[in-house]
Design a protein around this nucleic acid. Structure first.
Length: 584
RNA sequence: GCCCCUGUAGCUCAGUUGGACAGAGCGGCUGCCUUCUAAGCAGCGGGUCGCAGGUUCGAGUCCUGCCGGGGGCGCCA
């Protein structure tokens, strides 16, 4: 049983409705909502207004009956019935104080495990072989990693899968081109990804212009698919080089446990996938291609739009691969499969999910979700590009953020006449990368996201540096008090006499609600807002309530508030994949 | 042409399954560093929630239409 105020009040109001109006009334949702205006208390129940019509009574009267039946004296002030028919609830300081004391000894900060843990596959990042990761992969990686973190905290069996683009017709031309420029049989040599990208561009150009080359490229695809050793080893060389370079990005981002299971993984299953679809009577041959038509999807001419599962030339495409991957994941026991892929693919995923359901590969209990996200835009509101028009490489973007953070730390030290900290590189990395991640995650996932170094590193407002700074400040106090390694024994009694203490406690107590909400809607910006509010409320507390200078037992009570705040920030930022520092 | 997303303060954006007088941050202006990190805090200004209808006790939120922005639309992934 969750013990967040929202959950508790929901249960109490539910019980009160049953006792006041009988079990058979249909209870209008929501039972309780947080208020927007503190004058209305902390939470309010609008159910009386929802019941007014069904029961043929005035809302105000029903609200009064509800309030009379409501048993909340242990956690809230007496309910207040107001105007149209709201029942307002204000949390009792004593309850809040006790709850904060409990959180001080709770590593989960009141985040209860999921009631029905399942296997969750999170498919994210998905870079392409022979291409440097660019900003498009940034959001997928950052968002996907956070989704996985949240699911993990709730006790799900989480699998982080990197569906790398390591297969396809493009390898035919690339390998054919390698032959011509002297790369044949030189798998031992090293090459930068930039070099490979140049080769890729050149291959592309030739493929478009040269018939003979096109023929050889196609031949190479056939050889690759049939497992020809020489072709295969060239392919493996490309994959290995690409992934080695990507690894640097993952290291910088602090992304771990991401298991590569690329498109090539599913090659052996494709023929069977198509055969099974045919056996199920779902396949229609159209212009030589094997198609599955899905109701409700049309093309630009208004004609039915198919998912093409086998091309006219016999080859497979990513529709087939994604079907095979989804089927495989369901077979391996996934209860939920989450795809973190840009919004441009949403029709594709809708169709893949639909076909998988038609084929019976996705039982009703298995949930497939496309977590769509918007584009990364430059400051002008256009797609982010370099001056030369290329897409921005992820390493360059992250490096710039880290460099800017470093410059700030150095400049601040100079202003204060202090030496530059010895760990300036570490601080710069944590702050710079954290800023990039937070700027993304604090934005609504579906909207296009305007990337601005100035804003994400502005160090003021709703940014990672602000939160990291708040954390470091708290840690400084805890260190001073000897609390840095944990509580000195049992959680101390907490008192909340100052308004700033009370406000802080109210924020600290709802982390469980917030995390569970984010686990459901996958909108990390709600978690960001919560952390920002916690930090902001903490800073107000910090200004008005001395901690170390206060006499006992007030000192310990305030230290407990500090400890819970620090732990909340660390937990929350951790869920976002953002590190914290004891000193900044 | 069809489908999806989107339009909220000068700028960037929040706004929980419809709930009370729409909120932040940035930028602008004014104060606060012999006191636990001023990357902070306190305060002042600023919005016909794209437009028009509709549903409802109640609409930024739901429905319809229109206007503007983004993305997608059969053998690339």
């Amino acid at each position: 049983m969750a013990r967040t105020p929202h959950d508790l009040l929901r249960a109490r109001v539910g019980a009160a409705v049953a006792s006041a109006f009988g079990d058979d009334v249909e209870v209008p949702e929501p039972l309780v909502v947080p208020t927007t205006d503190p004058r209305h208390g902390d939470y309010t129940s609008p159910v009386a207004m929802g019941l007014a019509r069904a029961l043929g009574r005035a809302p105000h009267e029903l609200a009064q009956r509800l309030a009379d039946a409501l048993e909340v004296s242990d956690l809230a002030e007496p309910p207040e019935v107001v105007r149209p028919g709201f029942v307002n609830l204000r949390l009792h300081p004593r309850w809040l104080a006790r709850r904060v004391g409990e959180l001080a000894g709770d590593g989960r900060l009141g985040v209860e495990p999921a009631t029905a843990p399942t296997r969750v596959v999170v498919d994210y990042s998905g870079p392409n072989v022979a291409k440097a990761m660019h900003v498009g992969h940034l959001r997928s990686t950052i968002i996907g990693d956070s989704v996985a973190n949240v699911a993990e905290l709730l006790g799900h069996d989480v699998e982080r899968v990197n569906h790398v683009g390591d297969w396809g017709t493009q390898f035919g031309m690339l390998i054919a081109h390698l032959d011509d420029v002297g790369y044949r049989g030189v798998e031992g040599r090293s090459a930068s990804l930039a070099e490979i990208e140049d080769l890729y561009r050149a291959a592309n150009a030739r493929f478009a212009a040269d018939d003979a080359f096109r023929q050889r490229a196609r031949q190479r695809v056939v050889e690759l698919q049939s497992g020809d050793p020489e072709t295969h080893s060239a392919w493996r060389w490309l994959v290995a080089l690409s992934m080695a370079e990507n690894q640097a990005v993952y290291d910088l981002l602090g992304v771990h446990d991401l298991v590569v299971r690329g498109e090539s993984t599913y090659q052996p299953m494709l023929a069977e996938v198509v055969a099974d679809l045919e056996a199920a009577g779902l396949v229609v041959v159209d212009d030589g291609a094997k198609c599955v038509f899905v109701e409700g999807f049309t093309n630009a001419e208004g004609e039915p739009l198919p998912l093409i599962v086998q091309k006219a030339d016999g080859g497979y495409n990513y529709d087939t691969t994604d079907l095979a991957a989804l089927r495989s994941r369901a077979e391996l026991g996934a209860g939920r499969v989450v795809y973190v892929v840009d919004a441009g693919q949403s029709q594709h995923f809708q169709m893949v999910f639909a076909v998988a359901r038609m084929a019976g590969w996705l039982p009703d209990g298995v949930e497939a979700t496309h977590l769509a996200f918007g584009l990364v835009l430059g400051e002008g509101g256009r797609r982010l590009r370099t001056r030369s028009g290329d897409s921005v490489r992820l390493v360059d973007l992250l490096d710039e953020a880290v460099q800017r953070a470093r410059r700030f730390v150095v400049e601040r030290a100079e202003e204060r006449g202090e030496p530059v900290p010895a760990d300036v590189d570490e601080v710069a990395r944590v702050v710079g990368v954290g800023a990039v991640k937070y700027a993304d995650l604090s934005q609504h996932r579906q909207s296009n996201y305007v990337l601005s170094f100035d804003r994400m590193l502005s160090l003021k407002g709703n940014t990672a540096p602000y939160l990291q700074y708040a954390y470091a400040r708290i840690r400084s106090i805890l260190r001073e008090a000897g609390w840095a390694d944990g509580l000195p024994g049992e959680p101390p009694a907490v008192t909340l006499d100052e308004p700033q203490e009370l406000e802080l406690a109210k924020r600290l107590v709802v982390t469980g609600d917030v995390v569970h909400r984010v686990a459901e809607d996958y909108l990390s910006n709600h978690l960001c807002t919560h952390l920002f509010e916690v930090a902001q409320t903490y800073h107000q507390f910090y200004e008005h309530c001395p901690v170390l200078r206060s006499p006992e037992p007030l000192r310990s009570s305030r230290l407990a508030l500090c400890a819970v705040t620090a732990a909340t920030l660390r937990l929350g930022l951790g869920l976002l994949g953002i590190e914290v520092l004891d000193r900044i």
